[in-house]
Design a binder for these strands. Structure first.
Lengths: 223, 223
DNA sequence: GTCTATATTCGGATAGAC
DNA sequence: GTCTATCCGAATATAGAC
């Protein structure tokens, strides 16, 4: 691995740049300038810009998924095969939030790069992102096992909202800081994860006010 | 306004295309082809690609904000000057979700265009997006008035999570549909808004399980 | 106001020396 | 494996006729 440091220099630089600007806005020339390597090196090592992007995304997504799965497995082991809702959510939210807001600059860039790549419409990315749905399915299944009495649609909506909070926090934390006048402490990573876990958990377990439909139903039953 | 229909044809076509692909991926040639107008018309009417984007975004953002404000004002009037949390959230979430998931294709494109534009790093957009924080501040203020006993940071976090759910639902509803095997009904717009409002409201009013810190505090007080 | 034709810039890719 | 030099296509922007 230390042999071709040119390869990793390119990947690192690309990741850093993609964390802040979109795919189309970052040119190969920007990347090689940041990496301190020659322009031709990109095509030599990766073949094309698209393939560079694909390899980068695959590499980071694999690492993140691995970490999430490990946490999920651990939670399931701790619960004798069935993890509880909060533990599942912590396995889902912990890794990306820690990566993004933690001290490790490289990891932070990786996390922001990935949320940006997730909405990218470039073909090589789309393919990998679609595969990512498989990864989510395992979390959905774990949640359904943890909530056998809950309607299936509610579980999916709950997962959807959990992912929403994770994404927003990795992409728009800066706006929150500004909006709150620096009141919201984005360095207290564990607190943030816990906020997400608790609220997402409330959504999944149905500890919110009844939905309009159910209220209407209840009113009808009453009246 | 009906005079130069070329202008509006360009705006409409651009909006449609930007709803699905990013700024850098849509060329002026794509736009004029979709609009059925000449290439030079863009520069004649708008000056440049950037200015076209800026005008489009400003126009749609203004319309959306107006609708949100009207709903907020109405809620405040109904509550004799102080709107309750759910009404505020409904004013925040209703317009974008109805636009995005409603039947009006134009409106749907507008909503998706805007969430895409919000993460765009192109200068002309950044400027307008930053102004948008002012718009959010009014909602933050309304929420603080509705929740005088609640810690200020919790209000900001609650707003952050509400925005998260709105954004995710406007951008990734397709993934949810797939993941749930078509179980989640994305046509029942009112139900979706209500899901968002109820969960966001739970987050704001603190009806979730206590955070780790507070639990630790409670345990310390007890033991 | 609308079109054709063109200027100009930029970015991805490659050939070929070292 | 790395570099220089260059090709080629694409896209924005504009000049100027109608």
């Amino acid at each position: 691995m230390p042999t071709d440091e040119t390869r990793t220099a390119i990947l690192t630089a690309a990741e850093q740049l993609y964390a802040e600007r979109s795919f189309g806005e970052v040119s190969l020339r920007d990347i090689v300038a940041a990496a301190g390597v020659n322009l031709a090196a990109v095509n030599y090592h990766f073949g094309s810009k698209d393939e560079l992007l694909a390899e980068l995304f695959l590499s980071r997504a694999t690492a993140l998924n691995r970490e999430r799965f490990a946490a999920l497995k651990e939670a399931e082991a701790a619960g004798d095969g069935r993890a509880d809702v909060e533990a599942i959510l912590r396995a889902l939210a912990g890794p990306p939030i820690r990566w993004c807001l933690g001290a490790d600059r490289q990891r932070s860039a990786a996390a922001r790069f990935m949320t940006r790549a997730a909405v990218e419409t470039v073909p090589p990315i789309r393919k990998i992102v679609e595969r990512d749905i498989t990864h989510l399915r395992r979390f959905a299944d774990a949640l359904r096992r943890a909530l056998p009495d809950r309607e299936e649609v509610d579980v999916y909506w709950g997962l959807h909202f959990a992912l929403a909070m994770i994404r927003q926090t990795t992409t728009d934390s800066e706006r929150l800081r500004k909006l709150s006048g620096d009141l919201c402490d984005l360095d207290d990573v564990d607190d943030i994860i816990e906020r997400i876990v608790q609220l997402a958990s409330a959504g999944l377990t149905g500890k919110t006010a009844p939905l309009r439909k159910e209220r209407a139903k209840a009113a009808a039953a009453k009246g």
